[in-house]
Simulated scan of single mutants.
Amino acid sequence: MKLESDKKERVKDKEQFLVIEAREHMEQYIKEGYKSIEQIVFSSEYDIDPTGGVEVRGYLNNDRDKKFSGIYDPTNKKIGVALVDAKEK
Results as ranks from 00 to 15, higher is better:
I79Q: 01
M26R: 05
E4H: 11
V84T: 05
G58R: 05
G70H: 08
S36F: 06
K35H: 10
V84W: 03
N62W: 08
M1E: 15
E9A: 14
L60R: 07
K35T: 14
I37F: 00
S44Y: 05
A86I: 05
V54T: 05
K77H: 09
D6H: 10
E24G: 11
K89P: 11
K87T: 14
I40K: 06
Y34G: 06
H25P: 02
R64H: 11
P74Q: 06
D6V: 13
F68I: 02
I79S: 06
T75Q: 15
Y46D: 08
I71T: 12
S43I: 07
K87R: 13
V41D: 13
G53M: 13
D63L: 05
K78I: 07
V84K: 04
K66S: 13
E21H: 06
E38S: 12
Y72I: 00
S36N: 15
Y72L: 04
E88Q: 14
A22S: 10
K78D: 00
S44I: 02
D63K: 10
D49K: 06
I40P: 01
S43K: 11
G52S: 12
I40L: 02
M26N: 02
I20M: 08
Y59W: 15
N76T: 14
E27A: 08
K87Q: 14
Y46W: 13
G33T: 02
M1W: 14
E38Q: 07
D49V: 09
K7H: 09
V19T: 10
H25G: 01
L60W: 02
M26G: 01
L60V: 03
H25W: 03
L18F: 08
K78S: 01
A22E: 02
Y29I: 10
S5M: 14
K67D: 00
F42Y: 13
G33I: 08
I20T: 05
E15M: 10
K87G: 01
E24K: 10
Y59L: 07
K78Q: 13
E24D: 12
A82I: 03
R64P: 01
Y34S: 07
G52P: 03
V11G: 05
E21Y: 01
G33W: 04
R23P: 03
E9L: 14
T75K: 15
T75R: 12
D85I: 07
I30K: 00
K12V: 11
D49M: 09
N76F: 10
K66L: 13
I79W: 00
S69Q: 13
I20A: 03
P74S: 01
K89T: 12
E55C: 09
L3S: 15
N76I: 09
R10C: 07
N61I: 05
S69N: 11
L60Y: 08
N61E: 11
S36Y: 10
A86K: 07
